[in-house]
Design a protein around this nucleic acid. Structure first.
Lengths: 228, 228
DNA sequence: TTGTCGGCCGATCGCCGACAA
DNA sequence: TTGTCGGCGATCGGCCGACAA
């Protein structure tokens, strides 16, 4: 979670769309990350923020990032806005917060409410994560869906058809839409994603070892070998 | 030409390689751009540099770029080093200069030599530039070489062969090597680049309307509709 | 002179079950 | 249960000259 420069913000998303993306965002961020509610008070550490920005942009602090020597080491602020973001390339998630410093008088005015301690993030239960194999990412075929995963998070197939198959429409963190043919075939029978899968692999430049996360019909992919 | 932060520099290239790249760099920069010789004195404008960096990085000056209010509007400097650069994606060229401010006494010590006025850049004559057509960039075929261009800048073909053909090895601004099959065929006869051309087009993500510039056996491509 | 196209052939893609780990 | 492979049909890439602008 990388809070960005105070004072810059983007319009918040609203309605059902926000709820859905919020769940996907939290699934990617993991159970240890919780966001404070809007209106609550938070502590801002200018020095830590400055160092973090320097580290993440590979620039020297003194050369490119202004530091304000007369700022106190920590500032009590009120949280005005939170927006969730994800890197277009890697799907790394971060949150952007608009903070307003409180005057000493304002700090005294309000007591720390228990609600401001932050609510633990709600983790989705209907999801599965798989590390991609060489066969999954090769151009030779599609994606092998682990059986329990398919039964848990995909819509049920009509097993009276031969073979049972359906079209899945998934949406990633950036609201891009992906279509996959989901089929149950072979001997022994197994779940596969065929048509549409290779487009996704090449578009997101996935390689063996990367992971994909499916939540209901939403998905994201993640680079590297990390686990949830 | 975008001079970068003073005080940062990279090792200069030497020998024949530098000469070749220097010529290619000047061909891309155009006839209006000339570089001052090393050791000469130049005037540095901190305010203009700061604004230019802000514009090119789309950031606000006051938010991310330190300005030094007690700097004079212009600084007489001595040029210690010049290195030529090109954007890895677009081949946009720029030069990086190491400048050292001169003390008032040092400024008096030397007279402005005529040599310091800068030598006009030497433009290559053996080159050609072509704006890519739909056929040039489609996957259906190769690249149509304008006849006069082929005769002027490509090595002469052996017309006793049937058809006359040869392998061209070209090197771009970044010292990447590209191989093309150059053939003279068809009715009426014309020069074409076939094998190897599509690899170049997809690697540099060229589309119709982009331009390519060939100099002897060296080449670069340029995005957009600009002309030389 | 050169941009676009149909023809054609080989390479690759991608869906299938076989098979074994 | 699922990762990899051979088989094979469909699609695409890319080289050719025809033709016209």
């Amino acid at each position: 979670m990388r809070p960005s420069t105070p004072g810059l913000s983007q319009p918040a998303q609203e309605g059902e769309k926000k709820c859905l993306n919020s769940e996907l965002w939290h699934a990617c961020a993991g159970p240890l990350v919780s966001l404070p509610p809007i209106g609550s008070r938070v502590v801002y550490f200018p020095q830590g923020h400055s160092e973090q920005v320097a580290a993440s942009t590979n620039k020297e602090v003194d050369a490119h990032i202004p530091n304000y020597p007369n700022l106190p080491p920590q500032l009590i602020c009120q949280l005005h806005n939170v927006t969730m973001h994800a890197d277009a390339e890697t799907d790394e998630v971060c949150a952007q917060m608009t903070l307003q410093p409180l005057s000493p008088q304002e700090q005294k005015d309000v007591y720390l409410l228990p609600a401001e301690l932050g609510t633990p993030s709600k983790q989705p239960t209907n999801y599965f994560c798989k590390t991609l194999t060489a066969s999954d990412t090769s151009t030779h075929g599609g994606f092998s869906v682990p059986r329990r995963a398919a039964e848990k998070v995909f819509p049920p197939l009509d097993y009276t058809q031969q073979p049972p198959a359906q079209e899945l429409i998934a949406r990633d963190l950036h609201d891009n839409e992906w279509k996959f043919r989901h089929i149950f075939r072979g001997q022994p029978k197994r779940h596969l994603l065929t048509t549409g899968w290779s487009v996704f692999v090449s578009a997101r430049r996935l390689v063996a070892g990367d992971s994909v996360l499916f939540i209901w019909f939403f998905l994201r992919e993640r680079n590297g070998w990390g686990t949830f």
